[in-house]
Amino acid sequence: MACFLIPAAEAVITTIVTKVMRSKEANPETVKVQLDGEEPVEAEKIPFSRKLGWLNKLLWGGSALLAFEHVWHGEVVPWFPFLTAVSDPAEAAEMLNEMATAGVAMAVLVTAVWAGMLVVSSVIEKRAKKALPAES
């Protein structure tokens, strides 16, 4: 009914956090890695704000496409109050229940997948550093 509003709200918050972090971030850390399996090269580690950007894109993209699905089903309309369920108290209660269950679960799953991506990227970064031949 309006479950996409929860991930969309999270997207608003994470986008603001990303912008604030980006403005405060210092110069990125430079490391030596083998990017193509040949000579080690100097490379910049991507900052956390960029990784937070992944979550933003997942949340915004998913919310936008889900919003379209709700328009398709007539649950979202382009005129006030935009959500058809709001006009009926019983339907409004059902909508709030769906937001609290499915909506929150969506936001949690997307965030959990992103957290998994952070773990994997951290492992890849560490492995890339370890794979370097010992400097003579």
Binding site: C3, F4, P7, W54, K57, L58, L59, W60, G61, G62, S63, A64, L65, L66, M106, L109, V110, V113
Partner: peptide, 9 residues
């Protein structure tokens, strides 16, 4: 990003 986000949801 868009399609994976929507798929998860």
């Amino acid at each position: 990003w868009m399609y994976w986000g929507a798929s998860l949801m």
